[in-house]
Simulated scan of single mutants.
Amino acid sequence: MPQSIARPATLAAAALIAILPLSAVSCSAAQKALDCGNTAIRISSDITDVTTAFNNASNDAAAAGQALQKLKNDLDQLGKNSKNTDVSKAITDLTTQVDKVQQAVDAKQVPDLKPLGDAAGNLTQVCTG
């Protein structure tokens, strides 16, 4: 199940990064592209770390919790710094999914990572749509 978000998350990051070179027609569009690019780089790495940690949870259970906390911290920071309301909302939605994964882990349940991948995909749509 954790591998199911690895590819979409990577594709999402690539799509977000791809919009950076596009010339913006307004300051708002340029700011949105900058927000999205910065977000893509950090979140792509964090989601990959979460996926890897859950794939190896039997070897190092603490790594999953650490990876989730890093993702949450980065999302909090990016949400505070985002100047675009659509990007901020997508970050908030992604944070909600991180919280749900954390709740499952805290309850000693296997988390469903698909909604986390879906939320990352939604961030891509916000940035490219």
Rank of each mutant, 00 (worst) to 15 (best):
I5N: 01
G117D: 08
L75E: 04
D106P: 02
I19R: 02
A53M: 09
A30G: 01
Q69V: 13
A119G: 08
A63K: 09
Q31I: 13
K108Q: 14
A15T: 00
T52N: 09
K70V: 14
N73M: 13
D93M: 06
C27Q: 11
S28G: 00
T10S: 07
V126Y: 05
D35V: 02
V101L: 01
V25A: 10
A18F: 11
S44W: 11
A6M: 14
R7Y: 12
P21Y: 11
K89W: 10
S23D: 14
N55H: 03
T48N: 09
Q102L: 06
V126R: 02
P21V: 14
A9K: 00
Q66W: 11
L94K: 01
T128F: 11
N122K: 13
L68E: 08
L11P: 00
A119S: 12
Q125P: 00
L71Q: 07
C36D: 04
A53P: 00
V110T: 13
D106H: 06
A104D: 15
Q77G: 00
R7I: 15
S88G: 03
R7M: 15
F54W: 10
A67E: 12
D86N: 11
S58E: 15
N59K: 09
Q103C: 01
A63N: 08
A6Q: 04
Q77Y: 13
L94C: 07
K89F: 09
F54L: 08
A30Y: 10
A63R: 04
A24V: 06
T96V: 12
T96K: 06
L68N: 04
F54G: 03
T39V: 09
I19E: 06
I5K: 00
Q66N: 13
P111H: 05
L68T: 04
T52A: 10
T51Q: 07
D76Q: 10
A12Y: 04
L22M: 10
C36H: 04
Q97K: 10
G117R: 01
V98S: 05
V87A: 02
I5E: 04
S26H: 05
A120V: 15
G121H: 03
S23P: 00
S28W: 13
A24M: 06
K83C: 07
N38E: 15
L113Y: 06
P2L: 11
A67G: 03
T96W: 01
A64W: 11
R7S: 05
M1K: 03
V87W: 06
S58I: 13
V50Y: 09
L11Y: 07
A33V: 05
L113M: 06
L116H: 06
D76R: 02
M1Q: 07
A120F: 10
I17P: 00
S45F: 14
L123S: 03
M1I: 13
K114M: 15
V50L: 12
A57G: 00
L34F: 11
L116C: 05
A57T: 02
A18R: 10
V87T: 09
T39G: 00
K80M: 14
V101S: 03
A9T: 07
S58A: 12
K108L: 14
A119W: 02
K89C: 04
V98I: 05
A57C: 04
I5W: 01
D118T: 14
R7C: 04
V110H: 03
T10Q: 12
T48A: 12
K114C: 03
F54D: 07
